[in-house]
Amino acid sequence: MTAEGGGAPAPAVPPAPAPTEPPRPRGPGVRGLEIAVPAYVWANDAMLTDLTATAPAPSVVVLNPGNGDAPFDARWRSRADALRGATTATGEKTKVLGYVHTDHGNRDLAAVKASVDNYLKTPDGRLHVDGIFFDVVSRECGPDNATRDHYAELRRYVEDSMQAVDPAAPDLVVDNPGTAIADCYLEPGHRTADVFVTFEDTYAAYTGAGWLGGNVFDPLTGYRAGTELDPTGTAFWHLVHGVPDAAAMRAALRTAFERGAGYAYATSATMPNPWNTGPAWEHRAQTGYAATLG
């Protein structure tokens, strides 16, 4: 993903194999599709103003002050509080996440934790976000699962930091590899996040060879939907940019749901930064339509 005026390279994506299994229908009690928006704009940008007023509201909004390292100052905290006051189609409140980049696990751990602290250890001693969005995440387990365990430690750090401020606060951690994630990241007892962004690319890629055939993969058995690792239907998030029109937006959301995503976002904006402006259609056109899926 890109940040305000900047960005990081996307993970390399291997050639797409044939899908290993068709999409599966959701089981009883599993949530439908929800909208989760990366909003890489300034605190008072029109995109965030629109999202704050959207009804039904998006389920998740990612805030990104200066690639995650600019101060999360009073204006940002005020915007986060306003977004968290909005109501989603499920009757819950919007969750706000702070953006933190990780350079595929190569960024110094102390620097990553300092970025997390920027959001969770504020001067007023209060939580203004609901968790952290880790970007530029490796999709590989690493030797002896070392890379996976690096991200598991970051998740624990977020959980511990939030509980130190408010023991009753639920936390939401997202990892964004931008492509299918190795299934070791969802292994019980070692899971690195609540939600994984398992697609981030263009509409043309999403409807063509850019879809690898699943949300998770195993080096030996290939790609699969990962539904057995996702009992609530909320573990996967698809981000689609370069969507040509509102009809294609609805098609992208339907496809995301069929492919096992619990969260999705489709925008007409294009590279080099599709997340620093809103789509051609109103946000409520997307939040309202997503609420019909499921």
Rank of each mutant, 00 (worst) to 15 (best):
V13I: 15
E4V: 15
P123G: 09
G214Q: 06
R259T: 04
V158K: 01
A264V: 07
A261L: 01
A43M: 06
W76Y: 11
S268I: 11
T277Y: 00
A43V: 10
T232Y: 08
D135L: 03
A164S: 15
A269M: 08
P170K: 10
N106L: 14
T207L: 06
A225C: 09
Y99W: 12
D218F: 00
R31A: 14
A291W: 00
Y40S: 13
T234P: 01
A290C: 01
P11Y: 12
R250V: 13
T54V: 13
V112M: 09
F236L: 01
S138H: 04
G222W: 00
T49E: 15
V62R: 09
T102R: 06
G222R: 04
T234I: 03
P22M: 11
D103A: 15
W42H: 14
D194V: 04
V37Y: 08
T87M: 05
D69P: 00
P58Y: 03
V37I: 13
V129C: 08
G288E: 14
Y185H: 08
G66R: 04
W42S: 15
G142F: 05
G142V: 09
P177C: 06
V62M: 13
A146I: 13
D130Q: 10
A82H: 03
P219H: 07
E153V: 13
W211C: 05
D117W: 00
G68K: 01
A225L: 06
P38I: 14
Y263W: 09
V37G: 09
V13E: 11
G294V: 03
G260K: 01
A285E: 15
R77A: 06
F72E: 05
E4P: 08
A269E: 12
H190T: 11
R24E: 11
T287S: 10
T287E: 09
R126F: 08
S78W: 02
E228M: 02
P143F: 12
N44H: 13
A251T: 14
R79E: 11
H150L: 09
E159Y: 12
Y151F: 15
A164N: 14
T202M: 00
